[in-house]
């Protein structure tokens, strides 16, 4: 498969499409980690995952692409958005989404990128494969999963179950041994809902020990 490597200077249409999609993915990923708005980050993540799904399509992995769209775009990002809302993260632009060691992180990330890219280019310069449509179709993949990979597949289902139970246990507050209930109400009682700086209308609810109240408050926040 490495015989007769075509020139890099005359890309095929597939390659052009892939590179464009890849550029979209990388660019949106960059925006995910640099944007100053939390919700925007989640949205850019959607773009990134979508671009990646396109990449999968180009690479003839259709089933994976659709699963990517379904699960990542459809489920995970929604979960993340729910998380954002449940933690009452500030909606909108906020200046301090980056922590103090941003420079260090940048250096480490750049170094990682440099090494990975160098090594990858060095190692797979001559790797080439023609793309054959149909190899990643649902039929092929399904046959493979339920013939060869059925045991890991079942194990994975158990894992999912365990994760489900774990998430429930972690989230619930009324299980002994689970996460402790919220701190008692402040001795001063609920604070008055004043404060000129806080534009949100929910300070009284923050002292409320009952968590289910909060998302509704959140959604009505000044956003």
């Amino acid at each position: 498969m490495t015989e007769a490597v075509p020139s890099y200077l005359s890309p095929t249409g597939q390659e052009v499409v892939f590179l464009l999609l890849g550029a979209v993915a990388v660019g949106s990923a960059l925006l995910v980690v640099t944007t100053r708005q939390l919700v925007h980050a989640a949205l850019w993540l959607v773009v990134c995952f979508g671009a990646l799904a396109g990449c999968y399509l180009v690479l003839t992995a259709e089933f994976v692409a659709w699963v990517q769209v379904l699960i990542y775009v459809g489920a995970i990002v929604v979960l993340l958005l729910f998380g954002i809302m449940l933690t009452r993260a500030p909606i909108g632009r906020s200046a301090d989404l980056d922590s103090g060691n941003r420079v260090v992180s940048a250096v480490v990330a750049l170094a990682t990128a440099a090494i990975l890219v160098t090594v990858v280019i060095d190692g797979f310069r001559t790797a080439y494969t023609p793309l054959d449509p149909g190899a990643g179709a649902a039929k092929e993949l399904g046959a493979s999963i339920f013939a060869t990979w059925v045991l890991p597949f079942e194990a994975l289902s158990v894992l999912l179950l365990a994760a489900l139970i774990g998430a429930i246990v972690l989230s619930r507050t009324d299980i002994p041994g689970g996460s402790p209930p919220m701190g008692p109400a402040p001795p001063t009682g609920p604070a008055p809902p004043t404060g000129p700086a806080t534009g949100r209308a929910d300070p009284p609810a923050r002292g409320d020990p009952a968590p289910p109240d909060r998302p509704s408050d959140q959604t009505s926040g000044g956003h």
């Binding site: 993915a25 990975l116 890219v117 080439y128």
Partner: peptide, 23 residues
């Protein structure tokens, strides 16, 4: 399709993820 392309895209994505985790 040159394998380098997806590999490089993946490397860049990974590095961006590293940055995000750290920063």
């Amino acid at each position: 399709m040159h394998i380098v392309y997806p590999a490089v895209v993946s490397a860049l994505l990974f590095s961006i993820g590293v940055y995000g985790v750290l920063a």
